[in-house]
């Protein structure tokens, strides 16, 4: 167990870095999308358009914080806070570098899965309390989608947990010293990647907010900073899933020459770029296709992966005692 010598500093450090990255992602996503669509994207405000985020923030802060008169006010206000809280809570167990982790939890993987399950409430309650048919449809879709994809999201990491013999994220990273889990667990990696995209409700799985059919889905009625919280929550979710993939499958901070934290941030950054590439290139599927894909293809694959991994672990562990 590694405990940081300055817990408060670590907490604030992780909070500030996570929120800054989430804000910066707004700029990064727009620039990268533009790059892949042969455009420039925001490049006027400040160097490379970096201050665009600041301008957007100022704008969003000064917007009227409007609550529709027909909405269920308490839940309407709480919903965007839930997504921020659950995602930021997950960051608490992420090991960023040796010794830099807010809480070195023994059941870190389970904690993150639990928190991402709780995130469904945010979306479902937001859609419900808006009292708007589009919001409600978006919320229904989000609830169904996230529940279905959570099932095999959990199962797809179990292979990693079996190989590492621990739910602790730090120990999972340590277990990858010889070989990153992306090689023995390639199927699990692919499954988790797809589930991760679905969990963060990103394109191509952004059916809850499909703007071509549902206005803006569950956040149709939100404006100002409450909308901003959904927005930042989504980018925090991307950061979380990317760093999680980096930790579980790509060896976290492990890597030659460069310092550990650089390796971790580099892997996370590349995965985030991959997420944005997904958005730039793929259309969204029909909802029934999404469900069929989840239950009939991904879930059996995840179960098969778990069974085979389990069998191999048991077979090779004859001499060892667990």
């Amino acid at each position: 167990m590694m405990i940081s010598p300055y817990p408060v500093a670590t907490i604030f450090g992780v909070l500030i870095v996570a929120l800054t990255i989430a804000a910066g992602l707004i700029w990064l996503e727009r620039r990268l999308l533009a790059l892949w669509q042969d455009r420039y994207g925001p490049n006027r405000v400040g160097p490379f358009g970096l201050f665009q985020v600041m301008a957007d923030m100022i704008k969003i802060f000064f917007k009227e914080d409007w609550i529709p008169p027909f909405a269920d006010k308490t839940i309407f206000v709480i919903a965007p806070a839930i997504i921020m809280v659950t995602v930021l809570m997950s960051f608490a167990v992420l090991p960023i570098a040796p010794g830099i982790v807010v809480s070195d939890l023994n059941v870190g993987v389970l904690f993150i899965l639990a928190m991402s399950s709780l995130g469904v409430y945010s979306v479902a309650l937001a859609g419900w309390s808006s009292d708007n048919k589009y919001s409600l449809l978006g919320a229904l879709r989000a609830a169904a989608q996230m529940l279905s994809y959570e099932v095999f999201m959990g199962l797809s990491i179990m292979g990693v947990v079996l190989l590492a013999g621990s739910f602790n994220l730090v120990q999972i990273i340590d277990a990858q010293r010889g070989l990153w889990f992306v090689i023995p667990q390639f199927l699990g990696f692919v499954l988790f990647l797809i589930a991760g995209v679905a969990e963060t409700r990103r394109l191509p799985f952004d059916l809850p907010e499909a703007e071509s059919e549902l206005v803006a889905g569950f956040h149709s009625e939100y404006s100002g900073m409450k909308f901003g919280m959904f927005f930042v929550g989504e980018y925090l979710g991307i950061t979380l899933i990317s760093s999680l993939i980096a930790i579980l499958f790509l060896g976290g901070w492990l890597g030659p020459i460069l310092p550990p934290i650089v390796w971790f941030l580099l892997k996370t950054f590349l995965l985030i770029c991959f997420f944005i590439l997904l958005r730039a290139s793929l259309p969204r599927p029909r909802f029934d296709q999404l469900m069929t894909w989840g239950w009939k293809v991904m879930l059996p694959l995840a179960v098969a992966n778990l069974l085979v991994t389990g069998a191999i672990v048991v077979a090779t562990a004859q001499g060892r005692s667990f």
Binding site: W36, D38, L277, A280, L282
Partner: peptide, 21 residues
């Protein structure tokens, strides 16, 4: 085809941008 789409989109990184500043 999904992978090929992604690769083709990725290759657009090296295309000339059409925006006129």
């Amino acid at each position: 085809s999904i992978l090929q789409t992604m690769w083709n989109v990725f290759l657009h990184m090296f295309h000339r941008r059409v925006t006129v500043q």
